[in-house]
Amino acid sequence: MGGETELLKDPEFQRLLVRRSRWRWGLSGLLIGAYLVWGIGGIYFAEAYAAPFMGIALPWGMAVGFLIIAMSIVLSMVYVRVVNRLEADEALEQDKHR
């Protein structure tokens, strides 16, 4: 049981944990928050949601819905790139230390 507690005390590893959890909960919170605000907002502002979006017949509420879907796609792609690159860098670092 010695190895992992040592690694847990390592400030490098602690920084890695903090960085990863920032990405994890930051992005999750952003998207789930967007869903809730948009979804619950629809109940109280139904008429505004049905209003045409920038002059075309596409309603505002649905335009924002498409935007949240697009945001999920873009943020997922960013997350995979960034976190996978972080991990690749760390693997390199560790190799250097060995």
Binding site: W25, S28, A34, Y49, A50, G65, S72, S76, Y79
Partner: peptide, 24 residues
């Protein structure tokens, strides 16, 4: 109509959440 969008958005967000929270 527009109500169905609640489902499609919830589904897409749920998959992004699985990626962030669970995948690795």
């Amino acid at each position: 109509g527009a109500d169905a969008m609640l489902y499609t958005v919830a589904i897409t967000v749920s998959w992004a959440f699985i990626l962030f929270a669970f995948a690795d």
